[in-house]
Design a protein around this nucleic acid. Sequence first.
DNA 1: CAGATTTACTTAATATTTCAAGTATATCTG
DNA 2: CAGATATACTTGAAATATTAAGTAAATCTG
Lengths: 174, 174
Amino acid sequence: MSAFLDEAVSPESAMDDEPRWLDADERRLWLRLVGLTTLLPGALEVQLKRDAGLSLFEYHVLAMLSEADGHARLMSDLAFWSNSSLSRLSHVVKRLESQGWVRREACLEDGRATNAVLTAKGAAHLEQHAPAHVDEVRRIVFDGLSPDEVRTAGEVLGKIFERVDPARLRQTES
Amino acid sequence: MSAFLDEAVSPESAMDDEPRWLDADERRLWLRLVGLTTLLPGALEVQLKRDAGLSLFEYHVLAMLSEADGHARLMSDLAFWSNSSLSRLSHVVKRLESQGWVRREACLEDGRATNAVLTAKGAAHLEQHAPAHVDEVRRIVFDGLSPDEVRTAGEVLGKIFERVDPARLRQTES
DNA sequence: CAGATTTACTTAATATTTCAAGTATATCTG
DNA sequence: CAGATATACTTGAAATATTAAGTAAATCTG
């Protein structure tokens, strides 16, 4: 990734408007961002999968339901809050439904819409496994960081997140 | 994710050793980290896929080869540098090979090992599409950040990265 | 208010990733 | 140096994710 990201390489380019290559600090952040996006979910999933039979994404979906009014959300809202496409969510909810952790309910106000609802069993499952998962998140993500680092990194990632999809920022603000 | 991450919820837990739930700043960083791991690759891939017919991972693999001596690396080294399992890499290299961008070569020193080698065509493809990709990375990731933010965020992510898999840290240090 | 468009999803097909073996070579141990 | 173990991959199958197409209900438009 160094070549074709930083400026040490390829003084000639295909088009003649040379882009601004990345400097050393940018390259470092970039590589770590790429590294984390590929490795972090897997690292956390080992524990979750083993202990709770959930992927990180599934856990996140259940957690988003657990904090909603009446433990229910419209599929499209839930897709938003779990950073996913409706299609991906639909498949995952089907699986969570088959485990008895979630059920679907037609929406009364809008005939097109469906609510995903966390069942009592799903809530219990989440409660049971949340502590170990939070411990794991803490162990991998937070134990090495000072409060100040947590705050500033959160700010910076927020600025990036905002640009990934401007409509989504509100998600982590509340 | 609020419930079962922060401390506003479930004063009683299954086991009685209550974990330390996340505080507001921790929760914010955590949600943004999760959000970025799920959305950032896709956001960058739109451009790459359309213009260069490459996923972010494939681009990364080619870039890692391009900066290696002789444009070649052992499969296991390449797996390390691209944060992937050998199996995943093997499948992807097969595809890159079928496009003529990479070829495999037996390693002379070790009969078990294989070198993945960037072909001239692969190097040309990378050179052709690198500028637009870097522009896109810059647009989404860096344009909103000050040099100071880039530096400090890089540091913090490094500390997390180190804990995801201690053996891997060296990767973004050089 | 009829036809066209948009919204909210689901589903089938495809692509990608992971998992579990399998193969072959290298190294280590008694 | 023979047998055991470890390393470096590859491959096929299973799980997961994305894409494209389809259905049905709501809304918008002339």
